[in-house]
Simulated scan of single mutants.
Amino acid sequence: MTSRVAAAIDAAHAQGRGAFIGYLPAGFPDVRTGIEAAVALADSGADVLEIGPPYSDPVMDGEVIQEATQAALAGGFRLRDLFPAIAEITSRVDVPVLVMTYWNPVVQYGVDRYADALVAAGAAGLITPDITPEEAGEWIAASKRTGLDRVFLAAPTSSDERLEMIAKASTGFVYTVSTMGITGERADLDAAARTLVGRLRAAGAERACVGIGISTPDHVAGVVDYADGAIVGTALVRALRDRGLDGLAETARALAGGTARQPSTR
Rank of each mutant, 00 (worst) to 15 (best):
T90C: 15
T90G: 10
R92A: 13
R92N: 10
R92D: 10
V93N: 07
V93A: 05
D94I: 12
V95A: 08
P96S: 11
P96A: 07
P96E: 04
V97F: 04
V97E: 01
V97L: 07
L98T: 00
V99F: 08
V99W: 05
V99M: 13
M100R: 02
M100I: 05
M100T: 01
M100L: 08
M100G: 00
Y102P: 01
Y102D: 02
W103G: 02
N104Q: 14
N104I: 10
N104M: 14
P105E: 06
V106E: 05
V107I: 13
Q108T: 10
Y109L: 12
Y109K: 14
G110W: 06
V111D: 06
D112K: 11
D112Q: 14
A115C: 07
A117W: 03
A117R: 04
V119W: 02
V119A: 06
A121W: 07
A121D: 03
A124T: 00
G125T: 00
G125V: 00
L126S: 01
L126K: 01
L126P: 01
L126G: 00
I127D: 00
T128S: 09
T128A: 11
P129N: 13
D130L: 03
D130W: 04
D130C: 09
I131A: 11
T132F: 14
T132S: 15
T132M: 14
E134Q: 13
E134I: 09
E134N: 09
E135N: 12
A136S: 08
G137M: 05
E138T: 06
W139V: 10
I140T: 15
A141W: 08
A142Q: 04
S143G: 13
S143Q: 09
K144E: 13
R145L: 09
T146W: 04
T146V: 08
G147D: 04
L148Y: 06
D149M: 03
R150T: 11
R150C: 12
V151D: 00
V151Q: 00
V151I: 13
F152K: 01
F152C: 01
F152W: 05
L153R: 03
L153W: 06
A154Q: 07
A155E: 11
A155F: 13
P156L: 09
P156V: 07
S158L: 15
D160Q: 15
D160S: 15
E161N: 11
E161D: 15
E161C: 11
E161A: 15
L163D: 09
L163V: 12
L163E: 10
E164Y: 13
E164Q: 15
M165A: 15
M165V: 15
I166P: 07
I166G: 08
I166K: 07
I166T: 09
A167C: 11
A167L: 07
K168Y: 12
A169G: 10
A169Y: 04
A169I: 05
S170L: 09
S170T: 05
S170K: 07
T171C: 05
T171F: 03
G172W: 01
